[in-house]
Simulated assay, not measured.
Amino acid sequence: MGKTNRTHTPAFKAQVALAAIKGDRTISEVAAHYEIHVNLVAHWKKQLLEGAAAVFDSRGKNTPPPDDPKVAELYEQIGRLQVELAFVKKNLPASVEWKRLQVEPAHPQLSVRQQCELLELNRSSIYYEPAQADPEDVRLMTQIDRLHTESPFYGSRKLAVELSTPESPVNRKRVQRLMRLMGLEALYCRPRTTVTSRCHKVYPYLLRNLAVERPNQVWSADITYVPMPSGFMYLAATIDWFSRFVVSWKLSNTLDGSFCQEMLEEALARGTPSVFNTDQGVQFTATAWTSRLEDAGVSVSMDGKGRCLDNIFVEWLWRSVKYEYAYPCRPETVRELERGLREYFGFYNERRIHQSLAYRTPADVHQQESRRPQER
């Protein structure tokens, strides 16, 4: 007999989505905690993020003046309703997770069926075993990430050969599936670098034959995959081309555009570049991203067709992050990863010297060169 499908309440979905948005655990860890499939967690998080703005928009339309007597009466009614709702929420039945913990399979007097009836709990939820991330997939994804960092021009065919052993062959289709999940793509010249939605405007590549001579002239952003013991995280960063200075960075447990938008706002709060270059991924072709840059007076640039090295400075940054921090330190939790990245980027900007910068640090070059026009 097949398993009975579980019915999740809106409150439970909101709780799971908020836990995912908090970002202190991977999607696999959130799914294991709430005993649901990882796809549900990612889907509910996306739904909550997309629907959050509508809550404020609907309340902000056609608002009457505050001195209107009818408005005062309405506020009074809302206040009473909020008190009633608080009382109801306080006396709501316990969550499904709490009820499951109260069931004792070896109870001397009550069977599992009787305990579930007393708790008003569906008996199938006691025996439900949520699908977990395949440990073999996690191991292969870690190896794929390392190989991609070493040789970003390797495609699924070569990666499958590298990963295969006589005892454990790896199918190319499996490698393709894991690469799609990780958001990885081989770097090589081809007619179409990225397939984007037709509704998104594709901007031209503005950096061809452009001499980058000062800080904040050209910024670039990209996203990479960071392996974890239980799942994975995504890291986005913005880098200044001239000084290699990391302007801002953000972590996320899902590959959505919200954390990229947060990174962009943080970067623009620290300065405004003349040109901002990205690839043609959906996070960077979204209207929210491009319109924000245009409103700030920034020229939007996107990697051109057949231009596999247009974003090479960010690729070098990912190699440094992984080989100098992620792989040697192997953080166990998201909090540890975030704390370690904060320390590493501080080291990268303030203390790590670069041969291409005449053995100076990115922060030193960024600050000194930024002051030169004022000194002149």
Rank of each mutant, 00 (worst) to 15 (best):
Y203T: 10
R244D: 07
W219M: 05
S230W: 00
S243Y: 11
K250L: 00
D256V: 02
V212I: 15
N216A: 13
S252P: 04
T238P: 00
R208Q: 15
S230R: 13
F259K: 05
L210N: 01
R190E: 00
S243C: 07
P227L: 07
S274E: 15
C189F: 07
Q217F: 09
C260H: 11
S248V: 07
H200K: 15
A221V: 04
Y205A: 09
R244A: 06
I239E: 07
S274L: 14
T193Q: 14
L235Q: 06
F284E: 01
C260G: 12
W249C: 06
V218G: 01
P215W: 04
A286T: 01
Q217S: 02
V282C: 10
Q280Y: 09
R244S: 11
R208H: 15
F276K: 04
P191T: 12
G257V: 05
N277R: 11
L187R: 12
F242D: 02
P229D: 06
P215Y: 05
L251D: 02
Y205M: 05
R244P: 02
S248G: 09
Q280A: 04
A286Q: 08
I239S: 03
Y205P: 01
M228N: 05
I239Q: 09
P229V: 03
T285W: 09
F232L: 06
C189T: 12
T272W: 00
V195E: 13
F242N: 00
M263E: 10
F242W: 13
V202A: 11
D240W: 10
S248L: 05
R192W: 08
E262H: 11
S274G: 12
Y203D: 08
N209C: 03
A269Y: 04
G257K: 07
Q280E: 05
T272L: 13
W241E: 02
D279N: 12
A236H: 08
E213T: 14
A237P: 11
S220R: 06
T196L: 00
K250M: 13
G231M: 04
T287R: 15
L187A: 12
P227H: 09
I239H: 08
T224D: 06
P204C: 04
D279G: 09
M228C: 09
K201G: 01
P191H: 12
A286E: 00
I239L: 15
L264P: 04
Q261R: 14
L207A: 01
R192E: 14
Q217Y: 08
N277W: 01
T287I: 12
P204Y: 08
N209A: 14
G257N: 02
S248I: 02
V226W: 01
L210R: 12
S274I: 08
P204A: 10
R214C: 07
R208P: 00
